[in-house]
Simulated scan of single mutants.
Amino acid sequence: MNQPTHISPLPFDPSFEAIPEDEAETTRELVETMRSITEKTSHDYGHAVRSVHAKSHGLLDAELTVLDGLSPELAQGLFARPRTYAVQMRLSTNPGDVLADSVSTPRGLAIKISGVEGARLPGSEGQTSQDFVMINAPAFTAPTPKAFLKNLKLLAKTTDRAPTGKKVLSAVLRGAEKVVEAVGGESATLKSLGGHPETHILGETFYTCVPVLYGRYFAKLSIVPISPELTALTDAPLDVNGHPDALRDAVNAFFASNAAEWEVRVQLATDIDKMPVEDASVQWPEDESPYVAVARLRANRQPAWTDDRSRSIDDGLLFSPWNGIAEHRPLGGVMRSRKPAYEMSSEYRGAFNKCPVHR
């Protein structure tokens, strides 16, 4: 994508964040709800998994190369100068229990970029990595932590239910989602509960959904497939019925014979009313500020998922938007509530599995 020539990015102002009086209580309930999910699943499995995005489908080594010649507003934070970083990628789906892929739910991508210099965010002092946690939607399913808590409680109610019932529910919800889309709409709630289309995960575009600081500005980030082998998989149907690990098998099959390349793109905020910080459900208008490429991400042919990699990454690593540098500080209530929730999840997993979780 070409660099912007017409936008005027808005410098971040602390007044753009507004913390509700009851946010601490809402966050406490969020943490409790996520802990209840983890306790249920760890009891079932005899092994603790993440409270959300428990099931991984691809665990990849990659390289991120910052593009040369970025304009000053784009050359911010870890993208300030051309450089290549080692990256670990984790592809996942969002429930807190490990389900057959016929329960089709939204997808996630977390990346950990190593060797990033800069002042650290609270709680990540002494580290040198930068994490970005993304989903395959340009906006979050809920505007605020309180609304997110309602959605998470719905998800928690489905945790530990009979897998066969979840498969049936997913099929019903996919049918309902197709009806909604046929009349020009899209339901984040239907998709989050199991109505996501049965498509190949490697064709997805992933977004931070919620903003982060981008040096002196603020922005959303996306990771977009650009190599022909990947773009061919966008919206490509994938048969998941009778194949409990169909997504994982498809990712392994792809990387057995293909490399992959994505662009890392940035959407700089230009208008606080149209591009709010505290309402995570707002899709920022791309006609006002398009996503612009700042880096390339490349993964070579490799075993994309193995038991050893799962032990190392699924059990041994924390991916959190709060693990990073101050120039990419997460913004808004949904991001603020994530910090203690992610910390609880990693501490619980480390204690239950007797395996330290690293940043």
Results as ranks from 00 to 15, higher is better:
N2E: 11
N2W: 10
N2G: 13
T5H: 06
S8P: 07
S8L: 13
P11F: 03
A18H: 14
A24E: 15
T26G: 11
R28E: 10
L30F: 00
E32P: 07
T33D: 03
T38S: 15
H43F: 11
H43Y: 09
D44A: 15
H57V: 09
G58L: 09
L59I: 03
D61T: 10
D61P: 08
E63N: 12
T65L: 08
A75V: 08
A80F: 00
A80S: 11
R83S: 04
Y85A: 14
N94L: 14
D97N: 11
R107A: 10
T128M: 09
S129H: 06
D131N: 15
M134S: 04
N136A: 08
P143S: 12
K150R: 05
L152V: 11
L152N: 08
K157D: 12
T158V: 07
T159M: 05
T164H: 09
K166H: 06
K167W: 05
L169Y: 00
L169N: 03
V172T: 12
R174I: 14
A176F: 12
V179P: 04
A182W: 14
S187K: 01
S187H: 08
S187I: 02
L193F: 15
E198N: 08
L202W: 02
G203S: 00
E204F: 01
E204A: 13
F206K: 00
T208G: 14
V210H: 00
V210Y: 00
L213N: 02
Y214V: 03
Y217N: 11
I223R: 08
S227M: 08
T231W: 14
A232T: 11
L233D: 14
D235A: 11
D239Q: 09
N241T: 15
A250F: 09
N252H: 03
F254W: 11
A256E: 15
A256C: 02
S257W: 00
R265L: 13
T270N: 08
T270D: 03
S281W: 09
P285L: 06
S289Q: 03
L297S: 00
R298S: 10
N300A: 14
T306M: 02
D307H: 04
D307K: 06
R309L: 07
S312V: 11
D314N: 12
D315G: 01
G316R: 01
P321G: 01
E327Q: 12
H328W: 07
S337H: 10
K339W: 01
E343I: 06
S346A: 15
F352K: 00
N353A: 00
N353M: 00
K354V: 02
P356T: 10
H358I: 06
R359Q: 12
